[in-house]
Simulated scan of single mutants.
Amino acid sequence: MKHVKKVSRRTRVVTGGALVAAVTLGGFGAWSASATSSAPAAQAAVKADASNKNLTQSTRLTVDAASRAAQAALDAARKDNQRVSVAVVDRDGNTVVTLRGDGAGPQSYESAVKKAYTAVSWNAPTSELAKRLEQAPNLKDIPGTLFLAGGAPVSAKGAPIAGVGVAGAPSGDLDEKYAQAGVAALNK
């Protein structure tokens, strides 16, 4: 059995006091960080509204709509007995929904996301973009993109708002057919 050195009363009092001070100051810091401020920046944020000419608004798919598009693409692939992954990204390329179909290959998930990102970035189907590589081969070097058929953009008033990407079928033409089925589901 080890011998434990007894700590003096003075050391215990000093250590306890330091602990109480740290907890109190930490609590005060958390409280003050969450307190409302009357600083000019906070007041300016309150005045920002839709009629402010310094702001823009963007249209985004709801999670329900993105889920509906992804499910429609996956269902179209299942109907043809294809094992694919589907991704829907927003205008900024952030993934909103992904579905990995039963038996889809491990590479299909990342490929679907990249195809969706590529489609929304250029507001064009990735099959068309793949043809552009002939004139501009360096396009393929842009991070996060994949210039293979299987991505379809979603537009509102002519502007891209999302992308649907499908990967895993034996051809990009099939992947893109399923991605288009996902986009079509948004118009129903």
Results as ranks from 00 to 15, higher is better:
3 H>K: 13
7 V>A: 12
7 V>I: 15
8 S>E: 07
9 R>D: 08
9 R>E: 12
10 R>C: 01
11 T>K: 15
11 T>N: 13
12 R>E: 13
12 R>F: 06
15 T>I: 09
18 A>P: 01
20 V>C: 05
22 A>E: 04
24 T>Q: 07
24 T>V: 15
26 G>H: 05
28 F>S: 14
28 F>Q: 14
30 A>Y: 05
32 S>C: 03
32 S>G: 09
32 S>K: 06
34 S>I: 11
35 A>R: 10
35 A>I: 05
37 S>I: 07
37 S>W: 12
40 P>F: 02
41 A>D: 13
43 Q>A: 09
47 K>L: 14
48 A>G: 04
50 A>D: 12
51 S>T: 13
52 N>L: 12
56 T>D: 03
56 T>C: 00
56 T>W: 09
58 S>K: 12
59 T>G: 04
59 T>V: 15
60 R>M: 11
62 T>W: 03
62 T>P: 00
63 V>I: 15
63 V>C: 00
64 D>T: 12
67 S>W: 04
67 S>F: 02
68 R>Q: 13
69 A>H: 01
70 A>L: 07
72 A>P: 00
75 D>A: 09
76 A>I: 01
77 A>Y: 05
78 R>A: 10
80 D>R: 05
82 Q>W: 05
84 V>I: 10
86 V>T: 00
86 V>M: 06
90 D>L: 10
93 G>I: 02
93 G>Q: 01
95 T>V: 14
95 T>M: 11
97 V>W: 02
98 T>Q: 07
103 G>N: 11
104 A>R: 01
106 P>N: 10
107 Q>C: 00
108 S>N: 03
109 Y>P: 11
109 Y>S: 10
109 Y>F: 01
112 A>V: 07
112 A>H: 02
113 V>D: 01
114 K>P: 00
114 K>Y: 02
115 K>Y: 02
115 K>C: 02
115 K>G: 01
115 K>N: 01
117 Y>Q: 11
117 Y>C: 01
118 T>K: 06
119 A>L: 03
120 V>Q: 00
121 S>R: 03
121 S>K: 02
123 N>E: 04
125 P>N: 10
127 S>N: 10
128 E>Y: 03
128 E>G: 01
129 L>Y: 08
130 A>V: 03
131 K>I: 00
132 R>A: 07
133 L>W: 04
135 Q>H: 09
135 Q>W: 02
136 A>V: 15
137 P>D: 10
138 N>W: 07
138 N>G: 06
138 N>R: 14
140 K>E: 14
140 K>C: 04
141 D>V: 03
141 D>W: 03
143 P>D: 11
144 G>E: 05
145 T>Q: 10
146 L>N: 06
147 F>A: 08
147 F>W: 08
148 L>P: 12
149 A>R: 08
149 A>F: 03
149 A>V: 05
149 A>G: 14
150 G>I: 07
152 A>W: 08
152 A>M: 13
152 A>K: 12
153 P>H: 02
154 V>T: 11
155 S>H: 05
156 A>P: 00
157 K>L: 14
162 A>N: 05
162 A>I: 14
162 A>Q: 04
165 G>M: 14
166 V>H: 05
166 V>P: 00
169 A>P: 09
170 P>G: 08
170 P>T: 13
171 S>N: 12
171 S>Q: 10
172 G>F: 06
173 D>E: 15
174 L>V: 09
175 D>A: 07
176 E>W: 05
176 E>F: 06
176 E>L: 09
178 Y>H: 08
180 Q>T: 15
184 A>Q: 12
184 A>D: 12
185 A>C: 13
186 L>S: 08
